[in-house]
């Protein structure tokens, strides 16, 4: 199992958060929305070229800009 950043995950895949790179602000912000290391994320939509991605986490939908998604390290779950 190898790790990739969230922005390169294909639509429909379920991934597990390994780590979040980025400063205090982004970490806290994501934590408030329920995104922590260990959580499962479903990638619902990956917008057009360099657009945001739509994820589902704990039954909630969240749009993340590419730049933010790039900072979330995940691994695919079978």
């Amino acid at each position: 199992m190898f790790s990739i950043s969230l922005d390169s995950v294909k639509e429909g895949k379920v991934v597990k958060v390994l780590d979040i790179y980025g400063g205090w602000g982004i970490r806290q912000r994501l934590s408030c929305l329920g995104i922590h290391p260990g959580d499962l994320i479903t990638v619902k939509k990956s917008g057009i070229i360099h657009g945001p991605i739509l994820i589902s986490i704990h039954g909630n939908h969240i749009a993340l800009g590419r730049g933010i998604a790039r900072k979330i390290l995940v691994e695919e779950v079978e």
């Binding site: 982004i26 994501l30 929305l33 939908h61 969240i62 749009a63 993340l64 730049g67 933010i68």
Partner: peptide, 11 residues
């Protein structure tokens, strides 16, 4: 300056 990027709930 680089914008912090979007984190937005889609209700």
């Amino acid at each position: 300056e680089i914008t912090p990027g979007m984190i937005l709930e889609i209700p």
